[in-house]
Design a protein around this nucleic acid. Structure first.
Length: 388
DNA sequence: TACTCGTGGGT
DNA sequence: TACCCAAGAGT
């Protein structure tokens, strides 16, 4: 038994009786014919495209995905082209989209499909689940969208929709809540046209049953909706309070040597794993995000001296005194980072071999490297300056 | 189980 | 401005 699946059942049928069920399906299909979204990865009948779009759409808005999807498909039009690519080029196409393990997993899965599956996409959920980066939702999405298998889905849009249809009070992210939602998803799913049905659910969640101010007047399912009946559509589903942001002050050093700059590939256990960055160090951490007193200042003379030591420890080379260039503010996960960018000339020494990959790169070649967002900004600035 | 992993757009 | 939120998966 695959641990990503659960067979535990709850009493969903009593919560949603057969008469209501057929009405829900009928109304939803009818609504979708007129109001469904038209998206680049829809109705292509190509599991590769469905897969790429689903991975990109994990925790990412449609608006953000569309340009990345188009670029990615132009560069890697099919499974063999993706499997044959270098990971660096895959990450380069992912740069700026976030959650970079998705790109690394896509690459791993592409290679596995070519070597172990004869470059054919598996059609069943258990086999899809065995692939890196494909969880229960994505497996259901690929199986139903690409192969019209009767596989249920639960994601942000359907979670909200199901919770409201059921007026679910509990925490939908808890184990119990998840079990209820997956049971419900399976219960409502028709045997035929499952892919179209799932897409209709998501379209409804994305355009009508939205998080705030759901447009219940235009909802084809309002007569099946317990939350609407009780006037509680604004309270369901229960929200989770995000962790407060922590202010962090960091420094990035652009080390220059004869027209090239030092880049470092970030390690497996670091944030932005696999991306390249200028050597980067934490300076200080504040208590709260709005405590700018400490983090907003430029690095002091003693901090800049300490930076030289840390560059030497990290890379093995010695540098001249770093000179402040510019400052970026960047929020990532729970941290609001103030990044002080400095420039320093190479003095003496040779690059270490043992640590993370280090490389001297000319500005004209920056575009070949997948960079962290802030590194890209700094790289662009440096390239513009040196081009003159 | 709870935490980690990013970023940009909307309000 | 400071939130909220988004087609989740891996550990």
């Amino acid at each position: 038994m695959n641990p990503k699946l659960s067979t535990a059942r709850m009493d969903v049928p009593s919560l949603f009786p057969p008469g209501m069920l057929s009405r829900l399906r009928r109304n939803l299909f009818r609504w979708h014919e007129r109001h469904g979204r038209h998206l680049p990865w829809r109705n292509e009948g190509d599991p590769y495209r469905v897969w790429i779009s689903e991975i990109m759409l994990q925790q990412t808005t449609v608006t953000a995905v569309v340009p990345y999807y188009e670029r990615f498909l132009a560069r890697f039009p099919d499974l063999p082209s993706l499997a044959a690519a270098d990971e660096r080029d895959v990450l380069r196409m992912w740069e700026g989209l976030g959650y970079y393990s998705r790109a690394r997993n896509i690459h791993k899965t592409a290679r596995r499909l070519v070597t172990e599956f004869d470059a054919q996409f598996p059609r069943d959920v258990p086999t899809l689940l065995s692939l890196p980066g494909i969880g229960r939702y994505t497996a259901g999405a690929i199986a139903s969208f690409a192969f019209d298998q009767s596989a249920p889905i639960v994601e942000a849009n359907t979670l909200r929709l199901y919770c409201r249809l059921l007026a679910c009070d509990g925490d939908p992210r808890s184990t119990q809540g998840q079990r209820l939602l997956w049971d419900f998803a399976e219960h409502v799913l028709p045997r035929r046209r499952a892919g179209e049905f799932n897409q209709a659910l998501m379209d409804l969640g994305a355009t009508v049953c939205v998080p705030t101010e759901p447009d219940c007047c235009r909802c084809p399912l309002r007569t099946c909706c317990a939350a609407f009946r009780d006037g509680r559509q604004q309270e369901v589903p229960r929200l989770v309070k995000p962790a407060p942001l922590t202010a962090v002050s960091e420094a990035a050093v652009a080390v220059h040597k004869r027209g090239a700059y030092l880049l470092r590939q970030r390690g497996e256990s670091e944030r932005w794993a696999g991306l390249w960055d200028f050597p980067r160090f934490e300076l200080a951490a504040g208590i709260a995000a709005n405590n700018h007193q400490q983090s907003g200042k430029e690095p002091s003379a003693s901090q800049r001296t300490a930076l030289s030591d840390r560059v030497r420890l990290l890379t093995g080379i010695s540098i001249e005194a770093p000179i402040p260039l510019t400052t970026f503010k960047h929020t990532v996960t729970r941290y609001r980072i103030t990044l002080h960018c400095l420039r320093a000339e190479y003095a003496t020494g040779r690059l270490k071999r043992s640590s993370a990959p280090l490389q001297w790169v000319r500005p004209s070649r920056f575009e070949l490297f997948p960079l962290s967002v802030t590194a890209r900004k700094l790289a662009t600035q440096i390239a513009a300056t040196t081009a003159r």
